[in-house]
């Protein structure tokens, strides 16, 4: 009997981990990635919270397992735009032609970052000193320059939480989960890079739910002297010599607050990347265009299978904001559900 085949859409952390787990369970795995390189957002990060482990290490270890496994076939630059049911299997459609076929499919298309320039009042795309948290990662990775003078060793830096998350005006009522801890992590990294700097985090609520997060927050306050201000920014405005003046409400003081900064970092949240349109025998994978929603799995809480249709499983952050440990665990769990499905248990 030939080995059963599983196709995975998206080679980010969820896709990579699913591929490894499924191959270890004995399946043939076709792993498709839209971009030219695998890794998803993980390839863009510098170090990971809460242990400050370099993101590259995790990606390398995942990639080694993927590349080393003979049953995994990774293809990059392939945009799967839809699925079609053919008997008991699924056909993968790439721009109107069939790209492959599999007994089961894992959708692991991940998330998109909120476009920081949509909050125009914060000045992203207008003032060079205003960057997004993803751009700060790129700076840490030395792929981008600091937006202030090289000679400035004591910059004042502000980090704004909840940009594009928990915001009815952006249509995103959910919390993106990872931004608070990312802000704490980045604040620490900034202090490590510029010990003489002043770093201010503007938050609505500090959501430190994950393992080791609260401890890192504590450390940021005690060891790195990061300032935490409970309040929202009204706007960023230019303040000469490329600096930025921010106005905010200090809600604990109950007074307006003014601060001049060398750099303002917007902690952008997660938004849906692919919205599947599920029909009788086809699934269209639509690109998110400012109105998509995360993939909804009915009955997910009571532990029902993480699938949209029989044989079509969904793993990782395409179901909603998630942190890396959650994504990796979800990928493993999906692999187990999938095995139960293919072996007829489910």
């Amino acid at each position: 009997m030939t080995k059963q085949k599983v196709a995975i859409i998206g080679a980010g952390p969820a896709g990579l981990q699913s591929a490894v787990s499924l191959a270890e369970l004995g399946y043939e795995v076709d792993l498709y990635e839209k971009k030219s390189r695998p890794g998803g957002h993980l390839a863009e990060w510098h170090v990971l919270f809460p242990d400050m482990q370099p993101a590259g290490e995790l990606l390398d270890s995942l990639m080694q397992k993927v590349l080393a496994h003979p049953q995994i076939r990774l293809e990059t630059g392939v945009n799967i735009s839809g699925l079609e049911r053919a008997g008991n299997s699924w056909q993968l459609i790439q721009s109107d032609s069939v790209r492959g076929e599999a007994d089961a499919v894992v959708l692991a298309s991940g998330f998109k970052l909120f476009e920081a320039s949509k909050k125009e009042e914060y000045g992203h795309g207008i003032y060079p000193a205003v960057i997004s948290s993803a751009e700060l990662e790129a700076i840490f990775n030395r792929e981008k320059e600091w937006p202030f003078e090289k000679t400035n060793k004591s910059p004042k830096i502000g980090l704004v939480h909840c940009v594009g998350s928990r915001d009815a005006k952006c249509g995103n009522l959910y919390c993106s989960k990872a931004c608070c801890i990312t802000a704490v992590k980045q604040a620490i990294e900034l202090k490590k890079t510029f010990p003489a700097s002043e770093v201010y985090c503007f938050y609505m609520d500090m959501r430190m739910f994950g393992l080791g997060y609260e401890e890192l927050y504590h450390k940021a306050q005690l060891d790195y002297k990061v300032h935490f201000i409970r309040g929202r920014l009204s706007e960023a405005s230019p303040s000469g010599a490329g600096r930025i003046q921010v106005k905010a409400e200090d809600t604990l003081m109950g007074r307006p607050l003014k601060l001049t900064l060398d750099m303002l970092v917007l902690m952008v949240g997660m938004t849906a990347s692919v919205s599947p349109e599920v029909k009788e025998n086809t699934v269209e994978l639509k690109e998110y265009a400012n109105k998509g929603e995360f993939v909804k799995i009915p009955g997910a809480v009571i532990g029902a299978a993480q699938w949209l249709k029989p044989g079509l499983f969904v793993a990782g952050a395409c179901k909603g904001p998630a942190t890396l440990p959650e994504v990796l665990n979800d990928a493993r769990a999906t692999a187990l559900d999938l095995r139960n499905y293919l072996s007829g248990v489910l």
Partner: peptide
């Protein structure tokens, strides 16, 4: 309302007076 303070931060009257809606 979660008293995030956004309203007060952007308040036009807040430039001159103690106007904080969340309060």
């Amino acid at each position: 309302c979660i008293a995030c303070g956004n309203c007060a931060a952007v308040c036009s009257a807040g430039h001159f007076a103690e106007m904080q809606f969340y309060r």
